[in-house]
Amino acid sequence: MALTREEREQFLAEPHVAALSVDAGAGRAPLTVPVWYQYAPGGNAWVLTGLHSRKNQLIQASGRFTLMVDRVEPTVRYASVEGPVIDTIPATLEELREVAARYLPAEKVDGYVDFAWKNHGEQIVVHMRPERWVSSDLGQL
């Protein structure tokens, strides 16, 4: 059963690990990697990534990407959203903290943020405007 707009947006707003897919060019399958992301219903989605990463190079070349999230309990449910890149900006410490707090226990956030800021190299934030959705709740299997 397809999710309503409100259901799919709320589902994407939950802290799932997403599969990010982006065109990898002629003769290649799409690059698909797990990512942390941020999204609020009705808004744009964003991801943090390394400025010099292959993922960022492909996103910038393509101008768009897909995020797909799913769960298997209490029901099998997924949502996939695809859209154009609308902005790419240098990441801030506050954005790193925001996305880390979405996924990590509160007591782990400061340590992770300190480590990531010092060791992951220059990071950017890539904003995507949700354009096409595919979603479903398959119920309990």
Rank of each mutant, 00 (worst) to 15 (best):
W36K: 03
L138C: 09
K55T: 13
R97E: 15
Y103W: 01
P30Q: 10
H120R: 14
V72R: 09
R77K: 08
L20P: 02
V72I: 14
A26M: 11
V99F: 00
R77F: 05
A79T: 06
L93A: 14
V125M: 09
R64Y: 08
D110R: 04
S80E: 15
Q60L: 13
A116M: 02
E73S: 12
E122F: 06
S53N: 09
Q10L: 15
N44F: 05
T88I: 15
K118Q: 13
A19W: 06
A106P: 07
L93R: 14
A100T: 11
D70S: 02
G25A: 10
S53M: 11
E98W: 01
Q123P: 06
V109C: 05
I124R: 06
A100M: 02
A101Q: 06
V35S: 00
A24L: 06
E98G: 03
T49C: 11
Q10P: 10
V76E: 06
N56P: 09
N119S: 12
N56M: 12
V22N: 03
R132W: 11
Q57E: 15
A116H: 03
N119Q: 11
R8E: 11
G43K: 08
A13G: 10
A101K: 02
V76D: 04
R8T: 10
G42Q: 09
V47D: 00
E94V: 13
A29L: 14
L31H: 08
P105E: 04
F115Q: 05
H120N: 13
V22I: 06
A19G: 09
Q10A: 15
V47A: 01
H127C: 08
A18M: 00
L104Y: 00
D87Q: 14
L48D: 10
